[in-house]
Amino acid sequence: MWLAEDAPIRKQDLVLEKLFVNAAGMLGFAPDPHIMPFLGQLGAFITNPISRRPRKPAGSRCCLPFPGGFLLHTGLPNPGISRIIRQYRRRWAAAPLPIIVHLLAEEPGTLAEMIRKLEGLENVLAVELGLPPDCTPDQLREFLAAAEGELPAMVCLGPEQIPTLLPTLQELNPIALHLTQPRGALPGPDGVLISGRLYGPAVFPLMLNAAREVIKTGIPVIVDGGVYEKGQTQAFLDLGVLAIGLGNQLWGIGQNL
């Protein structure tokens, strides 16, 4: 149990029984033990980002390598919350680990509607809110207010959002904060800049620094870290993170977590 033994447990405290989780977008919408032999090492399964309505893939979707990592630009395609629930609720219920549903926070009203649909589903442990890249402190307040309900709600922030949103987040004291891979940009094949999230070992120092800042607030932190070595895991543990999110390491073959 990754719990602080001296702190009382709130009704909505997030408890994970293993150190690792997957980063959203890395393992699909539901765990599949046949193709994911590492599930037993995860404390929770985080779904791909889900929106209220179906989203098509981005026109410029791509995977752009750079030294030390790659940029992923997908447009976060998904069939929308209603179809996802219809399609996956049984697999979530039967999963060997708890499910955290990643919701794309677009409007407070639609966020609240999505969360209501998830309440009562078996084996759903929590929701996490994927904020817009340009989210303001006021919007953050609205989103967290809309997310109040039966399910614990944690907030996802990229390191680039910390200066703007961390003070507000500290004031709102969410159940946990998920530090997600940073956003970046690279020239695409035709020279046009493409934005997306960055993955790979190159992001580790950035994430370690961000985690160091965030942990000072006292908010429990899950961090997607570009972790490739035991020493890097230990560095996060020494900071006192709640869990470590694994990204493309899970796509590797012949790798040991």
Partner: peptide, 22 residues
């Protein structure tokens, strides 16, 4: 097309529009 997740994640990078949807 790039297929970085090789079917593990439905990440969408390799999405192809077909007559029966994506």
């Amino acid at each position: 097309t790039d297929m970085p997740c090789h079917g593990l994640a439905e990440c969408g990078v390799c999405a192809v529009e077909t007559r029966h949807g994506t």
